[in-house]
């Protein structure tokens, strides 16, 4: 069975492309906003890798991760952003809230190898 990976983004095209480019190795679960994402996490306790867009209506990526950490403390979180690294993102990295961030346009090869790396760490 392929490992579950959650992707939260308010833009449907981004979700479709994320799923399409990574579904060979991983089971991609998508959520179109932060609230949905938290729901998914609550129902699927085995999700260890979570990707979130930064700028979303309502809760932004960092706020979502702050809440998600409560539900899934073992999760590895990543931010995807169309901006350069902001102070907020840098702070989240410094506090180890997120493992790293990916700039858009996304490099799916890099994302894929990062997921494999972190899952390998969890399994050993």
């Amino acid at each position: 069975m392929k490992p579950n990976v959650l992707c939260v983004d308010d833009e449907p095209v981004n979700l479709i492309l994320f799923e399409a480019n990574l579904n060979k190795k991983f089971n991609i679960i998508t959520a179109h906003n932060a609230e949905c994402g938290l729901d998914v996490l609550a129902r699927n306790k085995d999700i260890r890798v979570i990707f979130s867009d930064m700028k979303m209506p309502g809760m932004n990526g960092i706020d979502f991760i702050a809440n998600a950490k409560n539900i899934s403390p073992q999760g590895n979180f990543y931010i995807m952003t169309g901006f350069e690294v902001t102070d907020e993102i840098q702070e989240a990295i410094d506090n180890k809230y997120i493992s790293m961030y990916f700039k858009k346009p996304l490099n799916y090869m890099a994302i894929s190898s990062e997921i494999e790396r972190v899952l390998g760490q969890i399994n050993t």
Binding site: N14, L17, F83, K103, K104, L106, Y108
Partner: peptide
Amino acid sequence: INNPLNYIAG
């Protein structure tokens, strides 16, 4: 710009 660029790249 980066979001639509992400569509193209994806």
